[in-house]
Design a binder for these strands. Structure first.
Lengths: 224, 224
DNA sequence: GCAGCAATACTCCATTTGGATAGTTTTTTT
DNA sequence: AAAAAAACTATCCAAATGGAGTATTGCTGC
């Protein structure tokens, strides 16, 4: 059984999808979540063995959307695979989803057989679960390369974690390997204050230690 | 009927592929060619209506390879679609083929049904004809952007810090944000041992805390 | 056989960190 | 002017980290 989780804000969508997946006895739906925030919370409560292996993620959700959830999720749980399952197929969304770490992008209109097949394939051989029309767009993205180097998409990605200026400053120092005390000296503030900022940064990044925070900062290249 | 052409230097490959396509009566094989040069010559002799709509192109061929042929072909006959049909799946070949203008990349190992399906799809809706494992690699190309930026001269200096295998393993886990305990569990060793390894890593990296070590690991891209 | 190394495991100890809680002040937004 | 957000300060406590030392095992090269 492939352990999966479904993240979508529409209850009906979750039901339909769960139903599609239940037809054959290949999938074990570990949990459902109605937005990225709740998804991350539920993931945090699970042990390694309880964790879903594949996440079916909607893009548009309130509170925390699928891009941000995937960005954080791929950092925190590297073994887990994220498949975007959505009705949107515009270049920007596709590109951002891939950059966030998605290893699949299926259109909701796909039949249950196709979805199930793709997921099984992804699980078995690590092959990408991609709708053909999405694949075509990805090819065009690379062919024109404009999207890769250009930045309209990446600018929107900028500051997805909503860090305040001060918090970004603190995180940058953390990345340089400074200790609280040293940061405090540099900024002429108390090390207690630094600690407080750090805690806020962790909350926004949904992590709870320095290494995880740095991992996200580096892999998502928050600074350059 | 979908008008296609087969370009491959091995006669046997052409026969097998032609055979695969002939099973259902969907494909009209306009011609075969044994290299890019001959392919272009044959294309030049045809009128618009005689021209194949989809070219199945091998990559490695004498005289003129598939990349060059596709590059020239897409310029001369913009309406024609090129699908790479090859056994190679390394990033460089995939990337170059896409840049050359390929709108599909199928592995020869795919079943005749899959190949036929993909081609029909490409013909009908312009969807990309891409083997799932290739799709996965394309995602990674975009995610890491490595191939796009990488230059041939940039040979990564392997193991400049002389870390032992175990130490590299430990460092990799550190980068993922795991704590000593978690690493210990993963490797089924004592957390004391992990600590010892970490200290050794720090010595070899000439640092004295995790953040500095991660900074080096990421900026020198010790991994991947 | 023996020296050297990597990997394993442990202890003691000081420092750093993270979490919770409880505030004040300043700036921005409404 | 009131409300909200951001920045600042502080303390207590527990957990994680880092440093230094000791020691056993197994493997490799001389």
């Amino acid at each position: 059984m492939i352990k999966v989780a479904i993240v979508d804000d529409k209850k009906n969508n979750r039901l339909i999808l769960a139903d599609k997946l239940k037809r054959n006895n290949l999938f074990d739906i570990k949990f459902e979540a109605s937005n990225g925030e709740i998804f991350l919370e539920k993931m945090a409560t699970l042990t390694f063995n309880e964790r879903p292996e594949i996440i079916l993620m909607d893009l548009e959700m309130p509170v925390m959307n699928g891009i941000v959830a995937t960005t954080i999720g791929t950092s925190l749980y590297p073994g887990v695979k994220y498949v975007m399952l959505t009705i949107f197929d515009d270049d920007d969304k596709i590109f951002n989803a891939i950059k966030a770490g998605a290893c699949g992008y299926l259109l909701k209109e796909e039949s249950s057989e196709v979805i199930a097949d793709m997921l099984v394939n992804l699980w078995k051989s690590g092959a990408g679960a991609i709708s053909p029309s999405i694949a075509y767009k990805i090819l065009q993205i690379i062919q024109h390369e404009s999207v890769i180097k250009a930045t309209p998409g990446q600018q929107k990605q900028d500051n997805i974690f909503q860090l305040s200026e001060r918090e970004k400053e603190i995180l940058k120092f953390l990345c340089q390997g400074l200790e609280y005390k040293e940061i405090a000296e540099k900024l002429s503030i108390s090390h207690n204050t630094v600690k407080k900022h750090v805690i806020h940064v962790y909350e926004k990044l949904h992590v709870n230690n320095k290494a995880h925070a740095l991992h996200i900062a580096y892999t998502k290249s928050l600074f350059k």
